[in-house]
Design a protein around this nucleic acid. Structure first.
Length: 510
RNA sequence: GCGGGUGUAGCUCAGCGGUAGAGCACCGCGUUGCCAACGCGGUUGUCGUGGGUUCAACUCCCAUCACCCGCUCCA
């Protein structure tokens, strides 16, 4: 992207800097030096994120007859994660290449015959001297340089483990180990056993609660298939790498929906939801061409999925994921039935059982899951909204960079700013009264009397406030205000009563 | 975790082995009345953190933390 002066601009840097300056996103615990991948949402950030999530809830739950909500505990029974496969698949064996320093997953590395002699360039560089080595008993080489000179496999548990209960399990471990002379392996075993007694995990996805509570939700509301259960909330993953500001962080917020369908209807449902979700993003964004759907290749699919589409956005660093719409088959409900002994299935009295030919069909539903990242969506909407106002030279002829967030009015933290032109002659009083009128309508308005009027316009442009209402001398005499549009900067004089209607109209559903 | 880069005022950045700087922001007074206005005055710093070398370290060395760019994982 280029600025109004034609100079190239680092869009991410600008967004991060504006986020901090205007109170959208701060680094967590900044005064202590910050904490890796943790961020706090400031006064405006919390409004933006909450607006995004509320819009999602409205589109997914409130405006649909057959989707209901759930708000589950973040900590769930540890067996949930055994059943879901997260305990095993989230602890991937990672290996470092001693030659080129690449880190990779051992199980996904290119296979090579054990004891075979292979050639590889020194340091992984194209012009590097060719070296020779023998493939060890693991039977694979570095995917980057082909070297067999590799570190041992190390397990990385991607779930946050903690213990439920006020007694510190380490105390018991210490008691068991006291006075014993043991090998590292033996200690490890004792540790694992003791820790496991009270071990619980912070959920790595909100989805599992919707499967685990499938029966309660379905029966309590007598839901008929197809139906969906939606949930928003925090999830936690010890990511190997965190990157791009709030794009990938260990603590993140999800908006997920599990849509249960009859076996055989999953393709049709996937088709519906992928288009629905793409459109949802586009309808709030400025640049629709920056979104696309991408189907996963067979190697990309998660262990539970038979098909998957990502909604991708063209971020400053390239195309990246916003949301995954996965066809999760009947994997999760079957697994939880197996592990818990509960019968997580559905009985349809009207349908004919395809295997017996008799009326009445009991089946395990198939699941389509649109799983969105709320924190990711927040970043995306900030990037999408970021723009420069047309250049305006000041009195000295210097061109000032004026940043504007062209946020959709429904997402904007403040919907309208009410500004007294000057702090006298009854203007502040009238402006404050007007703000109260907006509050009564449930519209987040902002009273602002600090600094010159031009600065206030600029400041509200920068946080995405769609409208500024200015109270001046004529307001008192004639009952009119000027209304200024963020995107055109055009002003119009209207009756005070009209202002409320105009703002309300702009906030109507897209 | 590995490799490369960065860290100085609220923001953007300059600086350098010898007294910590600029622009913007912020505060006050005055003027002004609709697009980061003008004049005058003022405030702001653990130079990321800890250690070392040195008469002297923001500057050189080591460690550490955080961020950015690659690699692997994902919403």
């Amino acid at each position: 992207m280029t600025g109004p002066d034609g100079q190239p601009v680092d869009l991410m840097k600008e967004v991060i800097s504006l986020s901090k300056q205007r109170g959208f996103v701060f680094q967590s615990s900044e005064i202590y030096g910050g904490l890796k991948s943790c961020y706090d949402y400031g006064p405006l950030g919390v409004e933006l994120k909450r607006n995004i999530m509320n819009e999602w809830w409205r589109a997914m739950v409130h405006e649909r007859e057959n989707v209901v909500g759930l708000d589950a505990s973040i900590i769930m029974h540890p067996r949930v994660w055994e059943a879901s496969g997260h305990l095993s698949s989230f602890s991937d064996p990672l290996v470092d290449c001693r030659n080129c320093k690449e880190r990779f997953r051992g199980d996904k590395a290119p296979r090579a015959a054990m004891s075979a002699e292979v050639e590889y360039p020194e340091g992984g560089k194209k012009k590097g001297k060719m070296l020779k080595g023998l493939v060890d008993e693991r039977g694979y080489v570095c995917p980057n340089c082909g070297s067999p000179d590799l570190s041992p496999e190390r397990n990385f548990n991607l779930m946050f483990r903690t213990s439920l209960g006020s007694v510190d399990p380490m105390q018991e471990v210490a008691a068991v180990l006291a006075g014993k002379s043991l090998t590292a392996e033996e200690i490890r075993k004792i540790l694992d056993e003791k820790v496991k007694e009270t071990a619980v995990y912070l959920r790595p996805e909100t989805a599992q609660a919707m499967f685990v509570q499938f029966q309660n939700v379905q029966q309590s509301l007598a839901l008929k298939i197809p139906f969906g259960i939606a949930q928003m909330g925090k999830s936690f993953r010890n990511e190997v790498t965190v990157e791009h500001f709030i794009f990938r962080s260990c603590e993140f917020e999800q908006m997920e929906m599990e849509y249960f369908v009859e076996p055989g209807k999953q393709k049709e449902a996937l088709e519906y939801w992928k288009n629905e979700r793409l459109w949802w993003y586009q309808s709030y964004a400025n640049e629709r061409s920056k979104f696309r759907l991408r189907q996963h290749g067979p190697k990309e699919l998660a262990h539970y999925a038979d098909d998957c589409y990502d909604v991708e956005y063209d971020y400053p660093w390239g195309w990246g994921e916003l949301e995954g719409i996965a066809s999760r088959t009947d994997y999760d409900l079957k697994k939880h039935s197996e592990f818990s002994g509960a019968h997580l299935n559905y009985f349809d009295q009207e349908k004919t059982d395809p295997t017996t030919g008799k009326k009445g069909w009991r089946f395990t539903p198939y699941v389509i899951e649109p799983a969105a990242g709320a924190t990711r969506a927040t970043l995306m909407f900030l990037i999408d909204a970021f723009a420069y106002d047309s250049p305006r030279p000041d009195a000295d002829g210097n061109v000032k960079l004026r940043r504007v967030l062209k946020l959709h009015p429904r997402l904007a933290p403040y919907k309208v700013a009410v500004l007294p032109l000057v702090k006298k002659e009854g203007m502040p009083e009238l402006a404050r009264e007007l703000v109260q009128q907006f509050f009564r309508e449930g519209i987040n308005a902002k009273y602002d009397e600090q600094h010159a009027i031009g600065k206030r316009y600029a400041r509200h442009d920068e946080v995405g406030t769609p409208y500024c209402l200015t109270v001046d001398g004529d307001s008192i005499k004639e009952g009119t205000v000027t209304i200024r549009d963020r995107d055109t900067t055009q002003q119009e004089r209207i009756k005070i009563d009209e202002a409320l209607l105009l703002v309300r109209k702009r906030l109507e559903k897209v």
